[in-house]
Design a binder for these strands. Structure first.
Lengths: 150, 150
DNA sequence: ATAGACCTTAAAGTATGGTTTAAGTCAAGG
DNA sequence: CCTTGACTTAAACCATACTTTAAGGTCTAT
């Protein structure tokens, strides 16, 4: 009998308005309807929603997700193209994870700085102590004029 | 003498329109001007732009970045609050990196599936082979009716 | 048979994060 | 002197990804 939109909301956490929006935009192929025009989602629809969530959360724009799903509906002739899209997404995601790990180091350093500042009650004190730890950039002068964490 | 907006664009890769936008929104404190009203950025401004970029790219909304930068301008009385904000951002970032790693596994699986499909020239064939590799969800039936990768 | 819950649609509205435009100021070079 | 190029502002505009609204259909219980 399929899943009602209510059930899909509960199973996926995606709001009903968004489910309709995805279908209208072609991310999800037209969902089967009962005799009253009410949607009945299948297991395959749920799987596709899982893929949409994955691609969306890894920053694929919805227009590109739409193109991918369109290719999925066109049979084996589009396998190569689909493989390329997935590969590109994998590369982009690896790059993004690496980037975030770099930003994490920045945040970690900021937190250590604030730990020192809070412990000593003074940012000026933290800056004095912090210059022993911070990795130095080329333009840092002898006078430490650019030591500034914010 | 400070850096012209042109130089800051070159140094940071941030467009001039965005630099002005950040300043207008209070992410960056009012930049010093020369006698003609032209902006002259300091090294401290560049450091703050680095922090803004970091926070922005780790998904802090600009309104929250603004509040953080505001606290930064209010002296040692706000150290505790600032530490908390940085700590919250660290936690959110760790969670995000973990999430992306999960999504990466999804994408990696998808790619292996398409590798098999492309090699055999048929998605049906890939589905047959793939069910040996895919981690099974609870609702998967004996008939594999929900094996669907997209 | 009437209320209330739950579904439908198309269209308008919203939030975020900028970018573009129009109109003007200023300094330097020909 | 006048053009060129780089800067300034405020305000309008844009893209993305939804969300909300308004108007209406259908099922169920009282």
């Amino acid at each position: 009998m399929g899943y009602s939109i209510r059930q899909v909301v509960q199973l996926t956490g995606i709001p009903a308005s968004t489910l309709r929006f995805y279908e209208a935009k072609g991310l999800l192929a037209p969902v089967r309807r009962n005799c009253n025009g009410v949607r009945e989602y299948t297991d395959a629809d749920l799987e596709r929603l899982g893929s949409i969530t994955c691609l969306k959360n890894t920053r694929m724009p919805i227009e590109e997700i739409r193109r991918f799903m369109e290719l999925c509906g066109q049979g084996d002739g589009t396998l190569q193209k689909r493989r390329e899209m997935v590969r590109a997404q994998q590369v982009a995601l690896e790059k993004r994870i690496y980037e975030l790990q770099q930003y994490k180091e920045h945040i970690d350093r900021k937190l250590r700085y604030y730990d020192i500042a809070c412990a000593s009650g003074s940012e000026a004190e933290a800056k004095r102590r912090y210059c022993c730890e911070k990795p130095r950039a080329k333009q840092d002068t002898v006078e430490n004029k650019s030591i500034e964490i914010v």
